[in-house]
Amino acid sequence: MNVAVAAYDIEPDAAPTANEAGPAPKRIVVAYGFWIFLLSDIVMFSALFAAYAVLVSATAGGLAGVQLFNQRSVAIETACLLASSYTSGLMSLAVNKRHRAGTYLFAALTFALGATFLTLEIREFAGMIAIGASPQRSAFLSAFFALVGCHGLHVAAGLIWLAVMMAQVATKGFRANVERRLLCFALFWHALDIIWVWLFTVVYLLGVRP
């Protein structure tokens, strides 16, 4: 910006610029740092996606995706995760209003939907391994289990995190540090849903096309 114009703009009651106001509040710094972590996590997932896309036809004579994937189960998993993302957003709204009962209610719904998603995914994996489609069978299956399993592990970690956060709300209340952690959890949960959008598109919808 032109220096002369900047000087002309300053009035006694003008809002301070970022430099004059000092460092940003911790809530903004923490959330921005967690945003950077999430983006690096997405970069890691992109490597797994690339590995899957490269190896998708390397079935070594074993079963391919078109024989293995059940789209009905995937549709239910997608619905569960999307609904849990929504209830997680409603939980954020309850947290902003310091509404304790609402926070517990939407956290319980988020947890139940996430747990349903994880149960369906584990059943799918167990069914695949039972018919001989285990990760060591072919490069395609190794890449599939690495990619989808890594997302499943993230969901499991998110469920543990959510349970811990509810214990913290119960014992510590809506303190500033608890609220920052809840904000980070909401970001994490929404980011997992974005990764799942690409997962069901690339693996389960594109992967079964002839």
Binding site: A15, P16, T17, A18, E20, A21, A24, P25, R27, I28, V30, A31, Y32, F34, W35, S92, N96, K97, L183, A186, L187, H190
Partner: peptide, 18 residues
């Protein structure tokens, strides 16, 4: 009038959201 950036996932003016 906020001099700061917004937190990702946060609202721009917390007081208004309440």
């Amino acid at each position: 009038n906020m001099p700061y950036d917004r937190a990702p996932g946060g609202t721009s003016i917390p007081a208004k959201a309440e």
